[in-house]
Nucleic acid binder design. Structure first.
Lengths: 139, 139
DNA sequence: GCATGAACTGACCTATACGTCACCCTGTGC
DNA sequence: GCACAGGGTGACGTATAGGTCAGTTCATGC
């Protein structure tokens, strides 16, 4: 893996458009260096973009993702800053744990739907062998 | 708990605006009955709204949530429908499992940030007792 | 020295998920 | 008889997350 990238390279690798990445820059989520006017991304920029995309998969807005990223490079030199960081981090953790509960519950329900559908299909296969579909097929 | 509700009652209970609930109706996520022109929600409508809100907490769009709700009251009378239901359900499950992996990874990282912040605070409390904040406080 | 391709910057367009507003209808109390 | 609360319907406004398009710059090849 190289250690410098263009927008287009990163866009293709990450499965997004260059436009999206430029948009993230405008929103302060990445800050690639420049060679003249051309954006030059390093591995740290790439890592941040990976975090952005993960945040999106979790359903967060770009603003929320930005706050999340801020936790990583927050100022750790003052106790007051550390205390704020700790509080914000814990709140984020609590939100994610709520999300996990929602996720588990939804997964449980969908597994129920899956089992039910499987059972219904199996039941029909047993009582109506050879019939591929629908009751009216017997008419 | 009553078994019929007005928009306003449900809105207050669920912590959303009546406007939002009416919007969900327009989008086909709920279909309350009517008494004249007035919406009348029953417990099933309420349950659907709870599912909508959970879907939102998971970051899904209303269109996605609608597809999710469709899994619950899909037509189970034909084998072809059951097969489609099974396929869609399994795809949803796979997506949610990806989301869970993202969630676990993010939670792990945030717990790392939390530990780090705690350690830094503890370290300073030991080496600089009585100092509440910042190096320049000594000037 | 000029076309070409890759990058850039606006400016405008789009869909989603509501909020806000104005205005209407209707049953109830006084 | 009428004000008023509670509910309803458009129509328009707003923020987010980009897509699309036009026009510009810049290094290179021929």
């Amino acid at each position: 893996m190289p250690d410098l990238f263009t927008v287009n390279q990163l866009a293709e690798e990450l499965g997004v458009t260059p436009r999206a990445i430029r948009f993230y820059e405008v929103k302060g989520l990445v800050a690639p260096r420049r060679a003249g006017t051309t954006r030059v991304f390093d591995r740290r920029d790439r890592a941040r973009l990976l975090l952005v995309l993960r945040g999106k998969r979790l359903g967060f807005s770009l603003a929320e993702i930005r706050e999340f990223l801020d936790l990583y490079d927050a100022d750790r030199s003052q106790n007051s800053q550390l205390t704020m960081l700790l509080a914000r981090t814990r709140q984020r953790i609590a939100e994610l744990e709520q999300q996990r509960r929602d996720l588990e519950q939804t997964l449980g329900e969908l597994r129920g739907v899956e089992r039910e559908a499987l059972a219904a299909l199996a039941g029909r296969a047993a009582t109506e062998p050879g019939v591929a579909d629908a009751p009216h097929a017997a008419e």
